[in-house]
Design a protein around this nucleic acid. Structure first.
Lengths: 170, 170
DNA sequence: TTACGTGCAAACGTTTTGCACAAAC
DNA sequence: GTTTGTGCAAAACGTTTGCACGTAA
């Protein structure tokens, strides 16, 4: 087997090997796409992206492989706040920027004294229970509007107004 | 903000009135249950809880009313990290303790300099984009094991050991 | 009376599974 | 040759909807 141009092509195959997964086309295509784009794709988005790359996969194969890759730790499988299933090739811990309009997600690190952040009960009944939780991880979601949805909203506002407005925004 | 036990009967009816919703039995039962327990029920859990209180509702009625109550702002409708649909009668902003095993959720406030926490891009492509997000809200999820799942896990470990033990293999 | 709420059953979109065939080891 | 992966179609799951009947205003 010859490997040319060492970018994510070989990386995907290598990752599969490290988990004793057969480096089939389907798996490489999926993994390459997620590694290259750093995006948090839904199965549907993946299906379309793969088709548009000339690598269509049956829906069953797609789901089977996404689940297998996640099970082996090569992908993170999760659902966004909107409940939509997504997969992420960035398996290191990180936080998220989430668009409240379209559900888009971007990975972020956190700047600031995160260690000092701690929970405090809101309701009486839960206060008792809280002591006995074992907290293992803190995950922050920064919620707002992604550039695209912001632009859409701005456009809508301008259209609704008519005359007065502010400077253009790229 | 402590709710006196036993007063929620009329409270539910009152809340319904404030939103011009007919105080039907179905709605009162649902709202009372959520107000009393401060829990983040799934539709299925609600259905069972209502049945065990002698107030069974058809699944259609349950969903229809949950959605209507959420639409009117009496409940918050959202999906947990596991993607399971849940409803919460605590409509004030708050953070969550989430069980990574069973998905249980408890409301918390946050102690600490939350204002100083800010995002920072993880990946190259996203760094450019990040500047143009408008962040409106920070939501923290404290992830770990709830008391019940902790106990379950401890029991399992004890059972698995017997005498000597070292590593556990996932 | 008239509008709205209920509950059944059927529809819906998403994800999973059973199976025969094909590919990888 | 055995094990594993693929893809089709069908099943399963949670949620929503159409409709006839019942109930609150």
């Amino acid at each position: 087997m010859i490997i040319i141009m060492g970018s994510s092509n070989s990386q995907a195959a290598q990752l599969l090997e490290t988990r004793s997964l057969r480096p089939t086309d389907a798996r490489r295509y999926i993994l390459e796409l997620l590694l290259e784009t750093h995006q948090h794709y839904t199965p549907e988005e993946l299906s379309e992206a793969l088709r548009s790359r000339g690598r269509p996969l049956s829906i069953a194969t797609l789901y089977q492989n996404l689940n297998k890759l996640a099970e082996k730790g090569l992908l993170v499988r999760f659902k966004g706040p909107d409940g939509v299933l997504r997969f992420d090739a960035n398996v290191a811990p990180h936080h998220h920027l989430v668009c409240i309009e379209c559900g888009a997600m971007v990975d972020v690190k956190v700047i600031g004294p995160l260690a000092r952040i701690s929970p405090k009960p809101v309701t009486r009944g839960e206060a008792l229970e809280m002591d006995s939780w074992s907290i293992q991880e803190k995950h922050i979601e920064f919620r707002g509007l992604c550039p695209a949805c912001q632009a859409k909203q701005t456009r809508k506002q301008l259209a609704a107004k008519g005359s007065k407005g502010s400077a253009g925004r790229p």
